[in-house]
Nucleic acid binder design. Structure first.
Length: 349
DNA sequence: CTCCCGGTTT
DNA sequence: AAACCGGGAG
């Protein structure tokens, strides 16, 4: 262990004792079920967005057995709007396996075997709940380590993951894993931020490679560049005497397991006249059915696609029926189903 | 508006 | 290596 590494760990712990006033409802929590729940909710999610979901989940399901017993549709409805819906599916599967086992796993390997739990989440739960010496490696930790130690190896490569994992575990104080892991992530979120980090007042700056060499904005490095494609979704609100057609998305695509209105996707922007020419539209709407009003346009930005959505209402003749994967539900019952954000936005507008 | 951010699975 | 969401910042 080098001096600069010892200094690093010591200053992180000191900062945590003296200056860390970041407060989360799951901090100091020792119940592994609550810790696991909060970590699943916080994956890819900002604390302030996740917090209300966490409160609702622990209130609805105070124990892992309550969650394990819950119907999938109900859990998805509670998860609605949080994004990355595979997390919800995996969470429920994990809850059922924990409940069947009769206790929460208390080893790193046992925790890592849970669905939806990868290296980061396993280390977080192992250290927070059981103080096991496993270093967390999330976006905050990558950034703090890359800057302080001046590492420009891309973090999203096998070599990068290996290097950062070894370093993270090297600077982990063996007997304070839980406190330290929380501290380094808070430090990354509050001081060593992605944009405009607080280097001027940072107690680590004297030994920080990136700060000393003016490389703060150049690390961490990522190798992949994101290509974003545009998609054009035309949602059809097909109404039949107070009822409306919906279906569950089952394809290997975004929003799997959520519901939607009958959808026609076009490769390019299309107005209603152009839409009527498509086979998809003709399969869903009888000829000469008039739109009830001009369509509503909404947009949603995903990681690698931009969704341009239109919503158009039609009144369907009573005898018409859609393919078997669609279901006709009362318009007043839509809140029982989980929908993607762009659809709930439309419904609430 | 346009970017930017982030764990796990396949 | 690529796909998966939604919200915040500029």
């Amino acid at each position: 262990m080098t001096d600069t590494k010892r200094f690093f760990t010591d200053r992180i712990l000191t900062w945590n004792r003296a200056h860390n006033d970041r407060n989360m409802p799951w901090k100091n929590e020792k119940n592994p079920y609550f810790i696991w729940l909060s970590e699943i909710i916080l994956q890819q999610t900002r604390v302030e967005q996740g917090r209300p979901y966490y409160e609702r989940f622990i209130s609805a399901y105070p124990t892992v057995n309550d969650l394990a017993k819950a119907p999938e549709e109900e859990v998805f409805r509670l998860w609605q709007g949080l994004g990355y819906y595979a997390r919800c599916k995996n969470m429920l599967a994990a809850a059922r396996s924990i409940s069947a086992a009769g206790k929460f796993p208390d080893t790193y390997e046992g925790i890592a075997a849970l669905k939806g739990v990868g290296a980061y989440t396993a280390a977080a739960i192992a250290s927070f709940a059981y103080n096991l010496p496993h270093a967390v490696l999330d976006g905050n930790v990558y950034r703090v380590l890359a800057r302080y130690f001046g590492i420009d190896t891309p973090t999203d490569t096998t070599a990068g993951k290996k290097l950062f994992t070894a370093l993270a575990n090297d600077v982990l104080p063996e007997n304070q894993a839980g406190i330290y892991n929380q501290a380094i992530m808070d430090f990354g979120a509050v001081v060593c931020k992605p944009q405009q980090p607080l280097c001027k007042t940072c107690a680590l700056a004297p030994h920080c490679e990136a700060f000393q060499k003016g490389l703060t904005d150049l690390v961490p490095v990522k190798s992949k560049k994101l290509t974003i494609k545009k998609r054009y979704f035309h949602f059809l609100l097909l109404e039949q005497n107070g009822m409306v057609w919906i279906r569950k998305r089952t394809a290997k695509d975004i929003w799997q397991n959520l519901h939607e209105f009958p959808l026609v996707e076009t490769p390019a922007p299309a107005d209603l006249d152009a839409l009527r020419q498509t086979a998809g539209f003709q399969q869903l709407v009888p000829p000469k059915t008039k739109a009830l009003e001009p369509g509503v346009q909404l947009r949603q930005q995903l990681t690698h696609q931009t969704i341009h959505a239109s919503f158009t209402r039609f009144s369907l003749s009573p005898d018409f029926s859609l393919p078997a994967d669609y279901m006709l539900v009362p318009a007043g019952q839509l809140e029982k189903y989980a929908f993607p954000k762009i659809i709930t936005d439309y419904l609430q507008r």
